[in-house]
Write a protein that binds this DNA or RNA. Structure first.
Lengths: 229, 229
DNA sequence: GCTGACATTCAGACTTCTCTCAGGAAACTG
DNA sequence: CAGTTTCCTGAGAGAAGTCTGAATGTCAGC
């Protein structure tokens, strides 16, 4: 399918718009609603390929919503958004089959990656879990990252940062952009941390790569330079 | 048969929907009812290949239901759902032929595995009871697990954990995912238990295997690494 | 009831990661 | 070229994740 249809359900307008616009930008067809009642009707009308569902809604919780949807015969996967302190058992009963959940706060890239992963599995498309950018290869299933033939050992944050850059090669990314995509949306530290992590990445990549791949665009940000073949 | 037909019978909507959607997702054709009376008519109408039957129903117990079905000439297997404190003999009287029972609470993977096992036997499909992942071999019928030529002696939980990992090789599985699939649906202990069981498995597998097969992906989870041949 | 196998929790030791800070290097600006 | 801004990177404190063994609970079978 060219444009998977996604229904975003969240009552907080900020979060909802953030998700909606991000996903549209990534090539998904997005509809959004703010409560449980309209979710039911929207699902029946639109038949989305995936629902991004906040568990805490004003009118009913994600559990009842899911129940009703499943009862109505809706089988596509649901990605739940839950608070970090929701106990596991509350969520467990919810998730079945291809379902999954992400805890708030999340980073945008995390959400997109999870959605892609779920759709890749459930829609049995031959879309690949591997991202390739020049001599760098990243397998999102195994989390294996290679530069040429050398395997890179990355920490979780390093992994997410590199993924973001690999998905946007040959484009200058500002520190603010990077912060928005790689770190959780309520992270309120300073942008210096991006510099630190760029530094960590370079330290691991440069000794292996044939040339420095991460370029500094002074005053603007950083760019992963992938020579076109 | 491509899509075995399953009838889910449970009066608790949560459990019923959980089962229904999980099984649909696994490729079964599912119908569901909530009491004994409608079970009889549904079975006659639908002729399911297997019935998933809660023993405790509001209007009549599983015993009468089974009796009537068998009297009406229905011969396909029934998988009973019973509470853990139901005495074994009470249930054994019920089961005949390919029948089996599972105690509540169960894990979703357990149910699916049992259903597959029963159907494999009764429908004489050539679906395989043996899972192979690299040098590990798991026979789900005999519960025999081998690494190379060495037989592994695993506890039930170890067995289920290894099965889940073997069904998802070369993919990082988060502790939450593992908890969801391997432990019972109402288990609300902490994720530390996953670490413990990973540790047990490694202790049994590693001395035999040619290389460590269970890898830790710090911050993400665990992965069963099966080198592609 | 005793025993042994299994499941679960917990605590301690340990490793690794995250983030901040600060000094120095590098790059711009006039 | 001197001042200013921006960037780089090492050091380190604290947080988080991991592993393991020991203690406790539970259950089935003898």
């Amino acid at each position: 399918m060219a444009n998977p249809k996604i229904l975003v359900v969240d009552d907080e307008p900020n979060i909802r718009d953030l998700l909606t616009s991000t996903l549209r930008h990534k090539g998904f067809a997005v509809a959004s609603v703010s409560n449980g009642a309209s979710t039911i009707s929207a699902v029946l009308a639109e038949e989305p390929d995936l629902i991004l569902l906040d568990v805490m809604l004003p009118d009913m919780n994600g559990f009842s919503v899911t129940q009703r949807l499943r009862a109505a015969g809706y089988t596509s996967p649901i990605l739940f958004l839950t608070a970090k302190d929701d106990t596991a058992d509350k969520i467990q009963g919810l998730t079945v089959g291809g379902d999954d959940y992400v805890t708030k706060p999340f980073s945008l890239d995390e959400i997109v990656a999870r959605i892609r992963a779920i759709l890749r599995r459930t829609m049995a498309e031959d879309e690949e879990a591997v991202i390739i950018a020049g001599e760098i290869t990243m397998d999102q299933d195994t989390h294996e990252v290679k530069v040429g033939d050398n395997v890179l050992d990355l920490s979780p944050t390093e992994f997410k940062l590199l993924r973001y850059m690999m998905l946007n090669p040959n484009r200058v990314l500002s520190k603010a952009q990077i912060l928005d995509h790689v770190w959780e949306y309520d992270f309120n530290g300073d942008a210096g941390i991006v510099e630190s992590y760029i530094s960590y990445l370079r330290r691991k990549i440069d000794p292996i790569a044939s040339e420095p791949l991460i370029q500094t665009k002074r005053g603007f940000g950083y760019m992963l330079r992938i020579p076109k073949e």
